[in-house]
Design a protein around this nucleic acid. Structure first.
Lengths: 113, 113
DNA sequence: TTAATACATGAATACTTCTTCATGTGTAAA
DNA sequence: TTTACACATGAAGAAGTATTCATGTATTAA
């Protein structure tokens, strides 16, 4: 009957779900991607992504609540940086994965570019 | 000014978003997790996850449209299997990641909270 | 203290998603 | 050709999500 199937445990499922929910948004993906390249303040993130400050702040709050980023006030501005670099491994692995699809290439044989 | 920031390209962003959307659901995560252990028909998936057949079928349709699973009819039943084993790497990496959190372990043994 | 800057946050709205219920479709057995 | 079984699919409602608008808060300068 093949009843020896393993399931994801409830706490792991919930934690994984929380992470994937945070990653399932283009704005948050870009924020994490650029923060991997260095900490930025809100104004810089806003201008790089060319979005409204309020929209960025709301997304930053979600990422902060999920412990994926951390904030640090410096004078009047607030700098954000990655708090959990490991999630970038997940993002980058996914980007490599979809890179092949987006370029219409087969699964392996990345080669040039 | 740090204007040499790299952004995720639009097609990659869209593709990554599509994948993370599919992964940001507990039912779909469990489905992918058990299908990694072997192909199953719908009735088996329903009984393992203990959910309504219609709910499972809807989620299977989404995973199928996203090319993460494939179906094969055998008699009256339809068997589903992974179509993109690479996404399981992403899921498993995430599960390992959250495993540490769920078990209350530090990221790299920084200090004992 | 007042004003300006940088950012956070609550409310409202449009949009998306998940589940359930009802029904449709394909296959096999009678 | 009926009937039963296994599964898909459309519609509807509830719940969650993202953005905008308006406003609040912390910091610095005047």
């Amino acid at each position: 009957m093949a009843e020896e199937l393993k399931l994801i445990t409830a706490p792991e499922l919930e934690a994984a779900h929380d992470i994937f929910k945070l990653l399932s948004n283009p704005t948050r993906l870009q924020i994490l991607y650029i923060l991997e390249q260095g900490s930025l303040n809100v104004g810089q993130i806003v201008s790089v992504l060319d979005m409204e400050q309020s929209a960025i702040s709301h997304q930053l709050a979600l990422l902060r609540e999920g412990h994926l980023i951390k904030m640090e006030r410096v004078g009047k501005s607030i700098y954000y940086g990655l708090d959990d670099p490991h999630v970038l491994d997940i993002i980058n692995e996914t980007l490599e994965h979809v890179g092949h699809i987006a370029k219409g290439q087969p699964w392996q044989a990345e080669s040039n570019d």
